[in-house]
């Protein structure tokens, strides 16, 4: 039973960046802009966060959480800045969303590694000393089972993810703003005829998604790594998009999908301890999360295929 609790704690850690980036994707896709650039925005966020934490650490008392807080904020801002490019290309210059997203991903890889070489003179950021540490919530952790699963030895970033998820759910599904946002993703011409500024709504959504993806990148590098490298994100942004589809563009579905993918990642790390799985080669488990993503999409692909106008170039005159 203990190994299962350990695995679950790790799975939640793996799930958190997928959840936060996926919520960013939810904003963007609900407004009608497909954002496969989440991966790149996470990459830039991770670089900025890891870099700033390394620079700030000597100036604070050892063990202070302040450098991490500043790092996460800077990561989120850098993700937002990168998303401006994607937003401008897709909304103003009528670029194909997927192509623009691919270009932004490539740009993010280039810029973050270039900056590493200019600032730190190597292909990666130097290692920081203090990563995010686990916490236990008093009282709540004594609840049987649930306490062990969700409140004992959990990374605080998971709670951050949950807070953002509830906020997203409230904003997108319970406010007039959210209703307008969703209408832009379903039938933007009709929204425009009702006086909604489609272009403004889409800018807000894409910039929010950049902010959240940058934050997710920071969270990921601070909890799963000791420095930023070219492979620091390794496809989590894309998995976040898959989780979004798998979770039917809904925050709670997204949470479930994220935990599922987190588990898939964790399985590879624990395989040595589970005798009947140890016969498979390590490559099998490296590939497993990505293969499971495809299988999950096949099994759970349903009638709802996401916001109707997502990925379409907005043309106000189209009927």
């Amino acid at each position: 039973m203990n190994i299962l609790y350990d695995m679950f704690s790790l799975a939640l850690m793996m799930a958190t960046p997928i959840l936060i980036a996926g919520l960013g994707g939810l904003f963007s896709e609900r407004s009608g802009v497909v954002n496969i650039a989440l991966e790149g925005m996470m990459q830039v966020g991770a670089f900025a966060c890891a870099g700033l934490v390394f620079v700030l650490e000597p100036h604070f008392a050892p063990g202070s959480p302040m450098p991490i807080a500043f790092g996460l904020v800077l990561g989120a801002i850098c993700g937002l800045v990168l998303s401006i490019i994607h937003a401008y290309a897709c909304i103003h210059l009528k670029a194909d969303h997927t192509i623009s997203g691919t270009a932004v991903n490539l740009l993010a890889t280039g810029v973050s590694l270039y900056a590493c070489q200019i600032i730190f003179d190597q292909q990666r950021t130097p290692a920081f000393t203090k990563a995010i540490s686990k916490v236990s919530v008093p009282i709540l952790k004594d609840i049987p089972v649930i306490g062990d699963l969700f409140f004992d030895n959990v990374y605080p970033t998971f709670y951050l993810g949950i807070i953002i998820m509830i906020l997203t759910w409230f904003i997108v599904f319970k406010t007039p703003f959210g209703l307008r946002l969703r209408s832009c993703g379903e039938f933007p011409q009709a929204s425009a005829s009702m006086g909604i500024n489609v272009i403004k709504m889409r800018y807000i959504a894409v910039l929010t998604s950049g902010f959240l993806a940058g934050l997710a990148g920071g969270v990921m590098v601070m909890s799963q790594n000791t420095q930023f490298t070219a492979a620091a994100i390794h496809g989590y942004g894309f998995i976040a998009i898959a989780a979004l589809i798998f979770g039917k563009w809904n925050p709670f579905g997204l949470l479930g999908a994220s935990i599922f993918f987190g588990f898939a990642q964790t399985l590879g790390l624990y395989v040595k301890d589970i005798s009947f799985l140890a016969v498979f080669p390590p490559e099998f488990f490296n590939a497993l999360p990505y293969a499971l993503t495809i299988i999950a999409l096949i099994v759970f692909s349903g009638k709802y295929n996401g916001p109707k106008a997502a990925g379409e170039i907005y043309d106000a005159g189209k009927r």
């Binding site: 290309a89 670029a95 623009s100 270009a103 280039g110 200019i118």
Partner: peptide, 23 residues
């Protein structure tokens, strides 16, 4: 010269081609 400058140039070229109607 950091070799990633080539990646940045490639990315910018894709970006500008994708925006060609707007440009």
């Amino acid at each position: 010269i950091p070799k990633d400058i080539a990646t940045i140039i490639s990315a910018c070229i894709i970006l500008f081609v994708s925006m060609q109607y707007g440009i």
